[in-house]
Design a protein around this nucleic acid. Sequence first.
RNA 1: GCCCCAGUGGCGAAAUGGUAGACGCGGUAGACUCAAAAUCUAUUGUCGAGAGACGUGCUGGUUCGAGUCCGGCCUGGGGCACCA
Length: 861
Amino acid sequence: MARYNPKEVEPRQRAAWDAVDAFAAGPPDDPRPRYYVLEMFPYPSGRIHMGHVRNYALGDVIARYKRARGFNVLHPMGWDAFGMPAENAAMERGVHPKGWTYDNIANMRAELKRLGLSIDWSRELATCDPAYYGQQQRWFLKLWKRGLVYRKEGVVNWDPVDNTVLANEQVIDGRGWRSGAVVEKRKLTQWFLRITDYADDLIEGLKTLERWPEKVRLMQENWIGRSKGLRFRFAFAGYTPTGFADGLEVYTTRPDTLFGASFVAIAPDHPLAERVAAYHRDAAAFIAECRKGGTTEADIETGEKLGFDTGLWVQHPFDPQWRLKVWIANFVLMDYGTGAIFACPAHDQRDLDFARKYGLPVRPVVLPPGADPETFAVGEEAYTGPGTIFKSGFLDGLDVESAKAAAIERIEAQDQGRGATVYRLRDWGVSRQRYWGCPIPVIHCAACGPQPAPDDQLPVVLPDDVTFDRPGNPLLRHPTWRHVACPACGGPAERETDTLDTFVDSSWYFARFTDPKAVEPIDKTAADAWLPVDQYVGGIEHAVLHLLYARFITRALKDEGLMSVAEPFAGLFTQGMVTHETYRTTDAAERWLSPADIETRDGVLVEAQTGVPVTVGGIEKMSKSKKNTVAPEDIFDAYGVDAARLFVMSDSPPDRDVQWTAGGVEGAWRFVHRVWNEFDTQPEGVDIAVDMAGDERAKALRQATHRLIKSVTDSIESFRFNTGIARLYEFLNVLKGAPVAGASPAVLAARAEALQALARLIAPFTPHLAEEAWTRLGHEGLVVQTPWPTYDPALAAEDEVVLPVQVNGKRRWEIRVAAGLEPAEVEKIVLGDEEVTRRLDGLSVRKVIVVKDRIVNIVAG
RNA sequence: GCCCCAGUGGCGAAAUGGUAGACGCGGUAGACUCAAAAUCUAUUGUCGAGAGACGUGCUGGUUCGAGUCCGGCCUGGGGCACCA
C-alpha cells in the first residue's frame, strides 16, 4: 500500500494527457456539439497568484465536465501582453519590454501547465505578437473606413504617473485605474472609437444575456446611462450674442416642470461661456476658477454651487413675455446633454441649492398627492416625487408622465425642439502615449491629413531599438521609425506614435482563438462555429471595462461582416476573490507581515525572525501591499496541485470571496489521501456482476453512489461546486463505512461500482488524482477520455422516508413511511399512531397537512 | 445622495416555503505511540441532569408552516455619483 505522492503522480498524469493531445478542440467536421469555455486571459506579470488558480480551476471544471458529457470543447489560453508594467520594468531595470514580457509568459505558461488545466495550448496567442496586433490594425482601419474611428481634440484624463491618457472607464474615483495617481485634465488630440453609436444596442442587448449576473447587467446599464427627455432651444430676449442666432439649446428630463423654470445655466466650458468671457473679465476669471476645481471626488463632495450672471436673458418657450436669466454654473457639465440646462429649483436639488444661494425664484409646479395647492411650498429639499401638475397653464391637472409627453408635443409643434434620448456613455478614447502597445496604423501627412497605413505595410511593427532613459513615449524620440512617405502623395510624412489602449487588444481575442492563425483578423467560418463563448469566467472588476468594450467591438466587427454574433459571451460567471487574514507587527512601525513570516510562540502570534508580537487584521483580497499573499507554487510543492484546486473551490460558492486558510488546504489534502486509500485498498479483479440482491449494505452503498452521481452533476450544472465537493466528502464517509475488510462479495462489487463513479466525478476537481485512481482500477484508457457517469433513477430515489410530524408548526415526533406514499395514507398512519394522543396534549385535530415525502403538520386546537 | 447585494454556530458555509446548521475548519475526549506529528474513533448551536425550551441582524405581516415571501428599520459590502 503506497502513500499517495502528488509530486510523482501529477507530472506523470500530465504527460499522459499530453501524449494523447487530450485537450485539443475537435476539427471543423467534428460531429459532437461544440462548447466554448473561456477564462479572462491573464496579464503576464511573471507569476500566477491564487486569484489565477481559482479563476482557471473554475473554468477547468466546466471544460472537463463538458468534455465528459460529450461536447467538443474549446478551452484556449493566451496573454494580454501589452501594457505599462513592461515599460516600468524597462525604466527601472533596463530590460527590454519585449524580453521581459516573453520571459514572464514562459514562466507563467509553465505554472499554468502545472495546474493541470485542460487547455488547447496549440491555440495560444499573445497580444504583443505582430501576428496578433497586425490583424488588430487591419480591423481598426476597417472601422475607420466605416466611420467608427475618429480623431478629435478634447479635454482628456491624463495620468501623470503613467504619462498617458485614460478612458473614462479607467478613471476610478478620480484616479488612474492602474497607477492610482490623481488624474489631471488636459486638452489633447486623440483617437476615439464611436461606442456611443451602439449605446442603444448595448443596452438592449443586455436583455438577451440571461446567463449573465444581474449585477453586471445593471452596472452596464447604469454606465451607459440612457435617459429620455427633451432637447429644445431658448430664443434670446433682448441681446443675442454673436454665433447664437438660433438660440441656446438645453436638454431636460423634466419638461413637465417647464412652468417652474427659474433660470438657465450653462457649463463653464460651454461655447457661450467662452463667448461671454471674451468681453467680460470677471466671467473669464470665474471660468478659470471652475476649471481649477477639477473633477476629483473631494472637489465634488465639498463642491459648493457657484454661478456667474452673464447678464443675458432668454424667452420662456410657452410665454415670450417671460424672461429667464442665463448663468454660468459650475455644476453644469459640458459633456452631458447640450452643456446647458433650464433650472426648476422646486423639483431639482442642485437647482434649488443654486437658487437659494443667489436668491432666484422657486416655483413649485408638481403638487404631491394630498397636498394643498394654496399652501404647498418647497423648503430646503426639492420635491422630486410623483404628483399633479399645477400653476402650469395647459399642463394643469396632468400627472408627471403625461405632462412630459404634453410638453414635448407642444415644443415639437412650435418647432423649438424634439424629444431626445441622451446617454452618459462617452466615446472611447483609445490613444495611449506609450511604447508597449499596438501601434495605431496611421500616417500623418501635412498635405493630405491622416492616412491609413497601406495594407502591404501591415503590420506596423514596433521598433525594438528604443530607449527608456527618459520619461515620455519612446516612439516619439526614435530617430527613424516615425519618418515615412505619405501613402497618398508620396511626400514626407510621420507615423502616428500613439498606441492603442490595451483594452482594445482584449476586446476580440476570444474571436481570434477560434482560428488563431487565420490570414484575416477573424476566420468567419471558425468564429461562427464557436461563438458566442458559451461560458466566460472572470473577475467582477471588469463588469464595465473589458466586458463593455468586448460587446461593442463584437457588434462593430459583426457589422463589418467579420463574424455573425452580436454578443460575444452567452454565459458569464464572475468569480469572487481569494482573501487572507492580514498581519501587522505591534511595534511602532506597524509593518505588514507575510503569513510565511509569522509563527505561534507560547500561544502568542509573533514575527518569526524578531519575536515581535503580531496583531491579526482584517480579511482582505490577497495583495502585495498588505503582504497577505500565498504563493501558489509553494502550495503545489507542499500539498500538490489537486489539493490547491480543490480547496479554492470547496470552501465558498464560486461567485463569493473565498478565504485562504492553512487549515482549509490541509483538509483538502487529507481528502486527496483518503480518496486514494479507498482506491488503494480495493482488491483487484472484483466481479462487479455478482448478484447483490438481498445484501442490504451493498444496496445502501449502491443507492449512495447513484445519488452522488445525481447531486454532483446537479452541482456542477448550477455552478455550486462547493456543495458538489461537500457531497464527495460525504460519500467518502459512506465508503469508509463499507470497508474492504470483512466485506461480502456483494459489498465488494458495490464498492467497485462506487469507485468507478467516484474516479470520474472527482476528475473535474482533482484531475490528477482521478487519473491515477482510474489506472488503479485497471483501466487502459484515461478518465479524460471517459464519459461522465450516469445514474439509475430507481436507485437514486429513496424507498423509505422519515417524515417529521409537527403539531401547530412545532416538530413533535417522526414516522417512517414508504417513499411516495399518498397524503391520505400518511394521514391515516399519523392519526393511528399511538404518539398522537400523547403529543396532542388534550387538543383535538382540526386539520392534517401532508406534504408528500416531506412533512406532516397537525393543526390542533 | 441614488442603485444593487449580503447579514445563519468559534470560523468558511448548507438548506425546491416543509426536520436550520449538510460538508469542511477549529475545539474537546479517546485510540495508536516511549513521546510527538500524522492517522483513526466519538463529540461539538445555546440553555438544561433530562424531557424539553430557545435559536438564521431588528421589527411587523402573509401562511397550517418563514432563514427563505412582503413592509419598515439597523449593519456591512459593492457600483454610480453635480448626468439636468
